[in-house]
Simulated assay, not measured.
Amino acid sequence: MQDYIFEIQLKVRDYECDIQGVVNNAVYQNYLEHARHEYLSSKAISFKELTEKEILLMVSRIEMDFKNSLTSGDTFTVKLKIERQGLKLIFFQDIFRHSDDVLCLKAKVEVIAKINGKLSRGEIFDTLLL
């Protein structure tokens, strides 16, 4: 995947690993979410302020393809690009390990918006993110 619009570098912490010594699969969702929130922040958009205005951005579906494992102490980069598809904003996110630049995870995250409790037609994504 090319044409990434944002990336963030992170490091695996010991407590994120399971008994096999690799990052627990659920932890990858935390990495992906952190990258999305930092992307919003880079656009001067506060997730907290949106919530206070009753604009709720929510994951409706997530697909993760595990390619290679991260282990304790690994540094890695989460890269993303976005695409609008109807009511949804799609985040395509990839995680690369630094030591060998190997792809560890490919993810597709579908996000919807509710405004004042009602499902948005997605126009909020045009004004906020694109």
Rank of each mutant, 00 (worst) to 15 (best):
Q2T: 14
I5Q: 08
F6P: 01
Q9V: 09
L10H: 06
K11E: 15
K11T: 14
V12Q: 02
R13A: 05
D14V: 01
I19G: 09
V22K: 08
N25Y: 09
Y28R: 00
Y28D: 01
Q29N: 15
N30M: 13
N30I: 14
E33A: 07
A35D: 00
R36K: 06
R36M: 02
H37M: 12
H37D: 14
E38C: 06
E38Q: 11
E38G: 02
Y39D: 09
Y39V: 01
L40T: 05
S41V: 10
S41N: 14
S42N: 14
K43T: 09
A44T: 08
S46M: 09
F47Q: 11
F47H: 11
E52L: 12
K53F: 09
E54V: 08
E54P: 04
L56S: 04
L57V: 10
S60H: 05
S60C: 05
S60K: 06
S69K: 06
T71D: 11
T75G: 10
V78F: 05
K81P: 03
I82R: 10
E83F: 03
R84Q: 11
F96K: 05
F96E: 02
S99Y: 10
S99C: 11
D100M: 13
C104L: 04
K106W: 07
K106Q: 13
A107H: 03
A107V: 06
V109Q: 03
E110C: 12
V111L: 10
V111Y: 00
I115C: 11
I115L: 08
K118Y: 10
K118V: 14
L119D: 10
E123N: 15
E123R: 15
I124C: 03
I124Y: 05
T127I: 13
L128S: 00
L129S: 05
